[in-house]
Amino acid sequence: MIPHLLRILLAQIAQLLSGASVRWVDCQPDTCQRIYFANHTSHLDAVVIWSSLPMAVRALTRPVAAKDYWAAGPIRRYLSQEVFNALLIDRQDIKVHQTPIQEILDAIADRHSLILFPEGGRSSGEEVGEFKSGLYHLARRRPDLELIPVYLDNMNRILPRGEFLPVPLLTRITFGPPMWLEQGEHKQAFLERARAAVVRLRDL
């Protein structure tokens, strides 16, 4: 009950703080299983994307977040696990037999969608960085998932890297058309294509 109310409250606060205008370009909100992948410039990114989804979609969508940040301290742990239902990934301790990819696939099963930041960390915001290979491995193991590129505008000015006080500017979230891993497509080519799909949304 309390996590549910907090979820609604925090989504409202995030929308108000970021003043987000949400655009769906050649794409509609849907409860089917998807991976939303976006550029990453601030700690608020996942919450802002998550809160811009319609409530029914939001309930099924789990952000992927770094364990070293989101499991530190009782408040962050409570928020990430009880409220946002985040999937916490250990960035430091990756084992051969228990890869994060397998953990993620087990966790979403045939029900949940994911919010993912393939740059692997926050960038300064001027350029979208190179994508790490996680998105490719997920797409290869689960070719049925729709991959939705997302571009977040201005978040790097609201809460830049290294700052802890947000400036309440306006942001814009653009969801793009779904894409899939093509048959026989190479890792590098696919990651480049995915990155280009995100960058393209910036100038639309």
Partner: peptide
Amino acid sequence: YGTLVEGH
């Protein structure tokens, strides 16, 4: 000014 979306 405003929403960063053309036309609003």
